[in-house]
C-alpha cells in the first residue's frame, strides 16, 4: 500500500497500517541503532522506543521523506541511550553484550576457524573504531559508509548542511583509519602496510 495512505490510516488509529511501516523500516533502523550503540539489546530497546515515539509524533510529520524523518527519531533515541549509558558507567558483567548470539549469526561455515577468528577480530576492531568517535562523526560514518545513505538524506536526518555532512564524514574516516592503523596487525595484509 502507498506510504502516504498508511500514514493517513495510522493517524486515524489504524495500528496495523503503522506496523506495515514498522516492518518496512525496522531492518534499516536496527542496523543504524546497532552500529551507533554497539550492543544488540540496547539497539533493540532504542529501536522499539523510536517506533513508539514515531507513532506518537506522527501528527508532526509534515510530508517529505518519511524514511529520513523516522531515522532522525532513531538517531536521536540512540543518542539518548548513549547518554543514559554513560551515566550508568557502573555496569556489571551481566550487562556486557552476549557475543555468542552475534557470532552465531555471522558465522560463515565455509571458512576455517583461523579465518573466522581473524574476521571476527577485524569486525570488532572496526566496531571499536566507530564507537570511539564522537556522536556526530559516528552517525555520519555509520549512515554513509555502513548503511549507504546519500549525503542529502544524512543532512536531513542530522539537521545539518550537506557540506557539513561531507566534512564530518571525511573527519570520521580519518579517525577510523588512524584507529585501525594502531592495530595494523589485525588488519588484512592488503591494508596492513598501506594504512601504516
Amino acid at each position: 500500500m502507498d506510504q502516504d495512505k498508511l500514514i493517513e490510516r495510522s493517524l486515524q488509529g489504524d495500528l496495523e497500517a503503522f506496523n506495515q511501516l514498522v516492518i518496512e523500516y525496522q531492518g534499516l533502523g536496527y542496523g543504524v541503532a546497532y552500529r551507533l550503540l554497539d550492543d544488540p539489546d540496547s539497539a533493540a530497546d532504542a529501536l522499539q522506543d523510536s517506533f513508539i515515539k514515531a507513532y506518537r509524533a506522527l501528527d508532526n510529520y509534515r510530508g517529505g521523506n518519511f524514511k529520513s524523518w523516522l531515522m532522525r527519531i532513531v538517531v536521536n533515541t540512540c543518542y539518548d541511550h548513549l547518554r543514559s549509558r554513560q551515566r550508568k558507567r557502573t555496569e556489571s558483567l551481566d550487562d556486557l553484550p552476549v557475543e555468542e548470539e552475534y557470532v552465531a549469526q555471522l558465522t560463515d561455515r565455509s571458512e576455517s576457524p583461523h579465518e573466522y577468528a581473524e574476521r571476527r577480530e577485524l569486525q570488532e576492531l572496526i566496531a571499536s573504531a566507530i564507537t570511539s568517535l564522537p556522536e556526530v562523526l559516528r552517525t555520519a560514518i555509520v549512515l554513509r559508509d555502513v548503511e549507504g545513505y546519500a549525503y542529502e538524506e544524512i543532512a536531513e536526518i542530522t539537521s545539518a548542511a550537506v557540506g557539513t555532512v561531507k566534512s564530518r564524514i571525511n573527519r570520521a574516516r580519518g579517525r577510523v583509519r588512524d584507529y585501525l592503523s594502531k592495530n595494523a596487525e589485525l588488519l588484512p595484509s592488503v591494508y596492513r602496510h598501506s594504512l601504516k
Binding site: L15, F18, N19, V22, I23, Q26, G27, G29, Y30, G31, Y34, R35, P40, A43, A44, L47, Q48, F51, I52, Y55, E101, Q105, L106, L122, Q123, I126, A127, I130, I141, D145, V146, G148, R173, V176, R177, L180, L187, Y191, L195
Partner: peptide, 19 residues
C-alpha cells in the same frame, strides 16, 4: 577505510518491532 567499513556485515533483526 571506506572499503573496510562497507565490508561490515548487515545485522540480522533479533525480533519484530511491530507495536
Amino acid at each position: 577505510t571506506v572499503e573496510l567499513l562497507q565490508d561490515l556485515p548487515s545485522v540480522p533483526l533479533p525480533r519484530s518491532f511491530a507495536l
